Amino acid sequence: MRIGELSRATGVSVRLLRYYEEQGLLVPERTPGGQRVYGADAPAVVRRVRALLGAGLPTRIIAEVLDCVCGSETEIEPCLSPLLVARLDAIDEQISDLQGARSSLAALVAATEGRGIAPAG
């Protein structure tokens, strides 16, 4: 299937499919004329990539784990658990940092409002 067909089949833009190729997530064959031709499994690969992106994994990690996805888009080999747990821990830390920043900012806004100074915006 050509890139336009894959785009229509998956709902992913041609530009994004090319990006996936640049990142090593999607590997097409090439015709003698240089056009991309994707195998029958390409729509499933794209769905897996989308599911992993939706789970907050960056493309560099997806490139490492993509071959270990088995069955459906969300079935991962157990050996990947430490990598995924580490990513989950990193996301939890980011959430904690953001909650702290939000609390600090809310306190500043409350103090500003208490002095009769309207916040900018």
Rank of each mutant, 00 (worst) to 15 (best):
R2I: 06
I3M: 10
I3W: 08
G4L: 01
G4E: 06
G4V: 01
G4F: 04
G4A: 12
G4K: 02
G4T: 06
E5A: 14
E5M: 05
E5L: 02
L6I: 11
L6S: 08
S7I: 07
S7L: 11
S7E: 06
S7N: 10
S7R: 09
S7K: 11
S7C: 12
S7W: 10
R8M: 10
R8A: 15
R8L: 14
R8H: 14
R8Q: 15
R8K: 15
A9T: 00
A9R: 13
A9H: 02
A9F: 00
T10A: 11
T10K: 09
T10I: 03
T10N: 09
T10M: 09
T10C: 13
G11S: 11
V12Q: 04
V12C: 08
V12S: 05
S13D: 07
S13C: 09
S13F: 11
S13Y: 10
S13E: 07
S13G: 15
S13K: 12
S13P: 04
S13N: 12
V14I: 14
V14G: 03
V14T: 08
V14E: 02
R15C: 02
R15D: 12
R15K: 15
R15S: 13
L16H: 11
L17V: 02
L17D: 01
L17H: 02
L17G: 01
L17E: 01
L17C: 01
R18C: 10
R18K: 15
R18H: 15
R18S: 11
R18G: 11
Y19V: 14
Y19G: 00
Y19N: 08
Y19S: 08
Y19T: 12
Y19E: 05
Y20K: 04
Y20A: 04
Y20V: 04
Y20W: 06
E21T: 10
E21L: 11
E21N: 09
E21F: 06
E21M: 08
E22G: 14
E22W: 01
E22K: 15
E22L: 13
E22D: 15
E22H: 14
E22R: 15
Q23G: 00
Q23T: 01
Q23M: 13
Q23W: 00
Q23I: 00
G24M: 05
G24K: 03
G24N: 05
L25Y: 08
L25G: 06
L26T: 04
L26E: 03
L26D: 02
V27A: 06
V27F: 00
V27D: 00
V27P: 00
V27W: 00
V27M: 01
P28I: 10
P28N: 11
E29Y: 12
E29V: 09
E29K: 15
E29N: 12
E29T: 13
R30K: 14
R30V: 06
R30D: 07
R30P: 04
R30N: 06
R30E: 06
R30C: 04
T31R: 14
